[in-house]
């Protein structure tokens, strides 16, 4: 850290506030606990003891007000699309969305004849990470979550953005 190096005791770490914020945010993204279809079973399996999402700092919250990440786990029907949008709007900033499985990403097996299925949740809310699979295994979901953590870590919330 340039001029600040070796000026303090050994137990003091110096970094920019931006980096610390990014680190703190990325290591505890609490996710919104709601499942729409069979992908939700895999999400539950990821949270359970064998895969244990809490070891990467993620724990389920049952209220959108307390959640940072929305995992859209399953088929989004037209009826649900309005609710998903409303739930996303209820989440506090900064907020992220993971589209889990092929149904949430593109409509999946309902892409042609499913009149009631939304063809991709990105038509309603902005998506950060897409996880492919039908349904994705917990390992795949964890890979997606780690990708999201990398993305959050590179964010610089305090740096003024160029117009």
């Amino acid at each position: 850290m340039g001029v600040l190096e070796n000026k303090f005791q050994d137990n003091v770490v110096v970094a920019s506030l931006d980096k610390i914020l990014g680190w703190a945010r990325s290591t505890s993204p609490w996710y919104f606990q709601f499942g729409l279809a069979c992908c939700a079973i895999e999400m539950m399996a990821s949270a359970a003891s064998r895969h244990d999402l809490e070891r990467i700092g993620m724990m389920p919250r049952s209220s959108p007000r307390q959640a940072d990440v929305m995992i859209v786990a399953g088929t989004v029907t037209m009826k649900m699309a309005l609710r998903v949008k409303k739930l996303y709007e209820q989440m506090a900033d900064p907020k992220y969305v993971i589209s889990m499985g092929s149904c949430a990403t593109s409509g999946g097996p309902y892409w042609q004849h499913g009149y009631h299925v939304l063809k991709g949740v990105d038509l309603v809310v902005p998506v950060d990470v897409y996880v492919p699979g039908c349904p994705p295994r917990p390992e795949a979901l964890i890979e997606g979550l780690l990708k999201l953590q990398e993305k959050i870590q590179t964010e610089r919330p305090l740096t003024r953005k160029l117009a």
């Binding site: 042609q112 009149y115 038509l123 309603v124």
Partner: peptide, 17 residues
């Protein structure tokens, strides 16, 4: 039955066979 083209502003992309 013909599926509707949009629902509450969400446009349903049409898919041809």
């Amino acid at each position: 039955y013909e599926p509707q083209e949009s629902f509450h502003g969400i446009v349903v992309p049409k898919i041809k066979e």
